[in-house]
C-alpha cells in the first residue's frame, strides 16, 4: 500500500537526520509499524542525564491515523500516564488534530519539547500536574529521583 513507501521514506529520513538526542531503531527488521526510540532527557530539564526508551506504534491506517507513543521507561511527568503503558495523548497525537502529512520526526520533537516544558493544562496525571504547578520543588525532586531510579 501507499503507506509502506511513506513509512520507509520516513524511516530512512529519520535515520539520516535524527532529531537531537534521539536514536531510532526497528526492533524487528521486517516490522515497519513498530519503532523503538531512545531519547535523552533535555539537558536543561529535570530529566537531564536520563535515557528513556519509547515505543512508537503505527496503526495500520497510518498516516491517516496518528501513531501511538508510549514511554517504556518510567517517567515522572504530568503528560505521561503513570502506569505500565506510559502513554501520551497530546497535541498532534490526538486523532482529531493529527493530519496525514504530519511526520514521526515532528512527533518526536514534540515529545522532547514536552519533556523540557510539561503542559500541566493538558495533563493525563492531574496529581503530578498540580504538584508541577504549585510545588515545583517537590516535583523537581520527584522527577529527578525517578530519573536516577529508572532512567540510568
Amino acid at each position: 500500500m501507499a503507506g509502506n513507501k511513506r513509512i520507509m521514506k520516513e524511516f530512512a529520513d529519520i535515520q539520516a537526520n535524527s532529531p537531537p538526542g534521539c536514536t531510532i531503531t526497528l526492533p524487528k527488521e521486517d516490522d515497519l509499524l513498530n519503532w523503538e526510540v531512545t531519547m535523552d532527557g533535555p539537558s536543561d530539564s529535570v530529566y537531564a542525564g536520563g535515557r528513556f526508551k519509547l515505543a512508537v506504534a503505527l496503526p495500520k491506517e497510518y498516516p491517516f491515523k496518528p501513531p501511538n507513543v508510549s514511554f517504556k521507561t518510567k517517567i515522572y511527568h504530568p503528560n505521561v500516564s503513570n502506569d505500565e503503558r506510559g502513554s501520551m495523548c497530546l497535541g498532534m497525537l490526538r486523532a482529531d488534530e493529527w493530519k496525514p502529512p504530519n511526520k514521526i520526526v515532528e512527533v518526536l520533537k514534540l515529545v522532547r519539547a514536552v519533556l523540557a516544558a510539561p503542559q500541566p493544562e493538558d495533563a493525563v496525571e492531574p496529581g503530578i500536574a498540580n504538584e508541577y504547578k504549585n510545588e515545583r520543588r517537590a516535583f523537581d525532586k520527584n522527577a529527578k529521583e525517578w530519573v536516577s531510579k529508572y532512567a540510568k
Binding site: A2, K5, R6, P63, P100, P101
Partner: peptide
C-alpha cells in the same frame, strides 16, 4: 502536475 510528490504517501 509535473514533478508533484504527494506529501502523504510520498508517491
Amino acid at each position: 502536475i509535473d514533478g508533484f510528490c504527494c506529501d502523504i504517501c510520498c508517491e
